[in-house]
Nucleic acid binder design. Structure first.
Length: 211
DNA sequence: ATTTAGACTGGATTACATCA
DNA sequence: GTGATGTAATCCAGTCTAAA
């Protein structure tokens, strides 16, 4: 008897109020942390709660106070439970049950909220994906157009160079066509145009060609 | 008939008590 | 002092059910 009373004092010193900060999960003691000890009490003689008359509905006042307490802290430790119970004129067991149910319902509400938020996020991501796909199509079209223009310029260059003395040189010997002696300005312009498009849209060459 | 909220059950975990 | 075991308190998920 006396020893349990001593323990109660000890327990008060190690009691923590923030046992479960968020959604309740089965207790996982964190490493390196002083292990919070759960308050323990000896069986009190006057149990008799289950045998008594079942009060069904709690009064508005009772619920208000319970809600207020729940808002402060979702966890209900022994002292608070007993204090609340006597303030409300309820059995501590009822208070414990109320908190348990309240936590469960709070959790499911939270999950529902999270779900609908994720759903909304997902939907807007899908919309954004569509938008980006459309943009890619548009850019691809612009790319083909630019390539056609390049081709045209190169053909023109070809025509001009065939009249020049160096026309006997093969294309292979000249390396890549756009490095030929003619049309650099025009080609550069065309490539600038293309490149600017990519820079503007923040995309990579490889990606576009691969798509 | 449906929803809400109080109560219960069962399994798990933890802290503490007791005993060999 | 220490490990094994028992017990009480508490948690959660799931369920039941009276009352609105």
């Amino acid at each position: 008897m006396t020893s349990s009373m001593h323990h109660e004092v000890d327990d008060q010193m190690i009691l923590i109020s923030q046992y479960y900060p968020g959604i309740y999960t089965q207790l996982v003691p964190e490493q390196g942390e002083a292990k919070p000890r759960r308050r323990r009490k000896k069986n009190k003689g006057s149990e008799g709660s289950s045998g008594g008359v079942r009060k069904r509905k709690l009064s508005e006042e009772q619920v208000n106070l319970l809600e207020q307490n729940f808002g402060d802290e979702h966890k209900l430790e022994s002292e608070r439970k007993d204090k609340l119970a006597s303030e409300l004129g309820l059995d501590p067991r009822q208070v414990a049950v109320w908190f348990q149910n309240r936590r469960a319902r709070w959790k499911s509400k939270k999950l529902e909220e999270e779900y609908s938020k994720l759903k909304t996020d997902h939907e807007s991501t899908v919309v954004e994906k569509c938008r980006l796909e459309t943009e890619v199509l548009k850019l691809k079209e612009e790319l083909s157009q630019a390539e056609r223009e390049i081709q045209l310029l190169m053909e023109r260059c070809d025509g001009v160079s065939s009249n020049s003395p160096s026309s006997s040189l093969s294309m292979d010997a000249m390396g890549p066509p756009f490095l030929g002696e003619f049309g650099m300005e025009g080609l550069e312009k065309a490539f600038d145009l293309l490149e600017n498009n990519y820079i503007i849209h923040g995309l990579e060459w490889v990606n576009l060609y691969d798509m």
